Simulated assay, not measured.
Amino acid sequence: MQIEFLNKNDNFDNLRLIFSGYGQDRRIFDYLLAQYEGNLALVYDYRSLDFDESLITPYKTIELFAWSMGVMIAPKVLQAHNLLDRVVKSTSINGTVYGIDDTFGIAHAMWQATIDSINEKTAMKFYQRMCTDKAVFDEFLPFSCQRSVQELKNELEFIQKINQIKGTNFKYNTAYVGLKDRIFPSAAQLCALENVKETNVITTQTGHFDINLFKQILIND
């Protein structure tokens, strides 16, 4: 895993920590650079569970924002490094704590089919499906990742392994569900959240990726 700071301010002891989705690099959140006056860090590239906790431990509190597969991965990683109890606010965006799941996430067969068929063309189709239309896709392209197909395949395979790690009892405070999501089915998200009283569920008319929604949640909230 990679951890990079999008903004760092030693005057604050709180950290806004973003766990990104599959198939991204830091470019996906480049438009957030210098827009937040506090500490803002990004976790991405889930090809291993290596996690430099020394970058996180100086902060007394963590505001967690997780997107897509990051919603499943974040609690497991933070708990493994005894950092989960520092989370004072948590928000999920278009994902569930179940990750790969036939009822509450992305179906196992769909995930395996993505592994089996991945190439440059199918990877681009994945990024297109993240967006609701061409206008949103055009917004996304300047921030699309610069990683090889082999790296993307390795990440898909390793996320399967992370998914098999026993989950936590962690509940996000707020969950945003994009009703036009074509990656993480909104029906599966809503089903996973149906009886979770601890979570405030907010539905939006967005797809899996939406710059304006990310800015609203990650900067303005």
Results as ranks from 00 to 15, higher is better:
68 S>D: 10
46 Y>N: 06
78 L>W: 08
57 T>W: 01
71 V>L: 01
66 A>Q: 02
54 S>I: 08
99 G>P: 05
46 Y>T: 07
103 T>G: 04
55 L>I: 00
80 A>C: 03
52 D>I: 10
80 A>L: 11
79 Q>L: 13
60 K>Y: 10
86 R>M: 08
98 Y>L: 08
83 L>S: 03
84 L>M: 09
93 I>V: 14
95 G>L: 10
65 F>V: 09
89 K>R: 14
86 R>T: 05
57 T>F: 03
47 R>S: 13
49 L>T: 15
52 D>A: 12
44 Y>S: 11
102 D>S: 02
92 S>E: 00
80 A>R: 14
73 I>G: 07
92 S>D: 04
47 R>G: 13
77 V>T: 12
98 Y>T: 03
44 Y>F: 13
46 Y>C: 06
82 N>P: 01
68 S>C: 12
96 T>A: 02
76 K>V: 12
57 T>P: 01
99 G>A: 07
63 E>F: 00
50 D>V: 12
48 S>C: 11
68 S>A: 13
61 T>P: 03
63 E>Q: 14
96 T>I: 09
73 I>A: 11
66 A>L: 01
81 H>M: 05
73 I>E: 06
61 T>K: 15
80 A>N: 13
47 R>Q: 15
87 V>C: 00
94 N>H: 13
59 Y>A: 08
65 F>H: 13
49 L>W: 09
62 I>W: 03
76 K>N: 12
45 D>I: 06
99 G>F: 07
51 F>E: 01
101 D>N: 15
92 S>N: 05
60 K>F: 06
101 D>M: 08
44 Y>E: 10
53 E>I: 09
76 K>D: 12
69 M>H: 08
51 F>G: 07
62 I>N: 09
77 V>M: 14
50 D>N: 13
49 L>D: 15
99 G>C: 04
94 N>C: 13
102 D>I: 02
49 L>Q: 13
60 K>D: 15
68 S>I: 11
59 Y>M: 06
77 V>K: 02
50 D>I: 11
58 P>L: 11
64 L>D: 00
59 Y>P: 02
56 I>E: 10
97 V>G: 04
70 G>N: 10
68 S>K: 10
54 S>M: 03
56 I>P: 09
79 Q>W: 00
65 F>M: 09
67 W>S: 04
81 H>F: 06
81 H>L: 07
97 V>Q: 11
96 T>C: 06
92 S>V: 02
97 V>D: 00
102 D>E: 07
78 L>M: 03
64 L>I: 01
100 I>N: 10
82 N>W: 03
48 S>H: 12
94 N>K: 09
45 D>R: 14
61 T>I: 05
92 S>P: 01
44 Y>W: 11
75 P>N: 11
90 S>R: 05
